[in-house]
Amino acid sequence: MTTIYLDPSKKKEQIVKLSDGSRGVMQAKKEKGGVAYDFEFYSHMHPSFLVTHAPVNGDVETVHSIDGEQQFKFKWN
């Protein structure tokens, strides 16, 4: 499981750090049902993914990709 460290005060866009030392970006996007959060990573080790709710400290998100299943845990920085 990889941990994504987030700053809860930055709700629209932020650079995120991962527990394996890699980085990425989180961006809020307007969707039909409200706001979704898009996570994209600079390294090809992790798939990009979208969550349809605000990230919650301690929550785990399971992402399915062509490389298999990965789990990401959100943690406040």
Rank of each mutant, 00 (worst) to 15 (best):
M1V: 11
I15Q: 13
A54S: 10
M26A: 08
K29Y: 12
L18A: 05
H46F: 02
G24W: 06
D7R: 01
L6G: 05
F39Q: 02
L18G: 03
N77A: 13
G33H: 15
G24H: 00
G58Y: 06
N57L: 09
W76K: 00
F39N: 01
E13T: 14
G34D: 04
S19T: 02
I66P: 12
A54Q: 12
P47Y: 08
S22A: 09
V63W: 03
V56S: 03
Y37P: 11
P55A: 02
H44G: 15
G21M: 10
M45V: 13
V35K: 04
K73H: 01
S65K: 05
G24R: 00
Y42T: 14
H44W: 14
K73N: 07
F74I: 07
L6C: 06
D67V: 13
V60Y: 05
G33D: 13
N77D: 15
D67Q: 14
V25G: 05
S22L: 06
N57A: 11
D20F: 10
L6V: 02
E69F: 06
G68V: 01
P55Q: 06
F41K: 04
G58P: 03
P55F: 05
Y37R: 08
K29G: 03
E31Y: 15
F41I: 00
S22W: 05
I4N: 09
K75Q: 04
W76A: 09
S65R: 05
K11S: 05
T62Y: 01
G68W: 06
Y5W: 04
V35G: 10
F74S: 10
S65C: 00
D20K: 03
I4L: 04
S9N: 13
D7I: 07
V51Q: 00
V60W: 07
F74C: 00
A54F: 12
K32E: 15
E40F: 12
I15G: 11
E13R: 08
V51S: 10
H53G: 00
V25N: 13
Y37M: 01
M45S: 14
K30R: 13
P47I: 07
N77F: 13
E69H: 06
S9V: 10
H44E: 15
E31T: 15
I15L: 14
N57R: 01
V35N: 04
T62F: 06
K73T: 11
V51C: 08
V16W: 00
V25M: 11
V25R: 13
G68S: 01
F39Y: 04
Q71P: 06
P55N: 08
D7W: 02
D20I: 01
K12C: 13
G58M: 02
H53P: 03
G21W: 07
F41C: 00
K75P: 04
F41W: 09
M26S: 08
M1Y: 11
S9T: 15
L50K: 13
Y5I: 01
V35C: 11
L18N: 08
T62R: 05
H64M: 14
K17E: 06
N57H: 13
K32W: 05
D20M: 00
E61C: 08
V16L: 11
G34W: 09
K12N: 14
Q71M: 08
H64E: 15
H44R: 15
S9R: 12
Q14D: 00
E40Y: 08
